[in-house]
Amino acid sequence: MKQLRITLWIIVAIAGSLFALFAYQLSQPKDEFVRSAMVGEQIPEFDLEPAFADRPGLSSADFANGEPALLNLFGSWCIPCRVEAPQLEALERQGATIHAIALRDREEDVARFLSAYGNPFTRIGRDDISEIQFALGASGVPETFVVDGSGRITYQHIGIVAEGDIPVLMEELRKAGSGS
Score class of each variant (00 low, 15 high):
residue 124 I to T: 12
residue 122 T to P: 02
residue 176 A to H: 09
residue 62 D to R: 00
residue 57 G to I: 01
residue 9 W to P: 05
residue 48 L to M: 06
residue 55 R to T: 02
residue 64 A to Q: 13
residue 44 P to Q: 03
residue 129 I to S: 14
residue 134 F to R: 14
residue 25 Q to V: 10
residue 79 I to T: 05
residue 3 Q to I: 09
residue 100 A to C: 11
residue 61 A to I: 00
residue 105 D to F: 00
residue 30 K to A: 13
residue 18 L to Q: 08
residue 130 S to W: 02
residue 3 Q to N: 09
residue 81 C to Y: 07
residue 169 L to Q: 10
residue 66 G to Q: 02
residue 88 L to W: 05
residue 83 V to K: 14
residue 107 E to V: 04
residue 7 T to D: 02
residue 102 A to G: 08
residue 131 E to I: 04
residue 109 D to T: 00
residue 38 M to C: 06
residue 47 D to Q: 08
residue 77 W to C: 09
residue 31 D to V: 15
residue 25 Q to R: 15
residue 132 I to G: 00
residue 161 V to G: 11
residue 129 I to Y: 12
residue 104 R to M: 14
residue 173 L to W: 08
residue 103 L to T: 01
residue 168 V to R: 13
residue 146 V to Y: 14
residue 101 I to Q: 11
residue 28 Q to C: 11
residue 155 Y to D: 13
residue 40 G to C: 07
residue 71 L to F: 06
residue 25 Q to T: 07
residue 110 V to Q: 03
residue 131 E to C: 00
residue 62 D to S: 00
residue 179 G to L: 05
residue 63 F to C: 12
residue 1 M to D: 12
residue 45 E to H: 11
residue 59 S to D: 05
residue 163 E to D: 15
residue 102 A to Y: 05
residue 47 D to F: 03
residue 65 N to A: 10
residue 92 E to L: 07
residue 125 G to A: 05
residue 120 P to C: 00
residue 46 F to D: 01
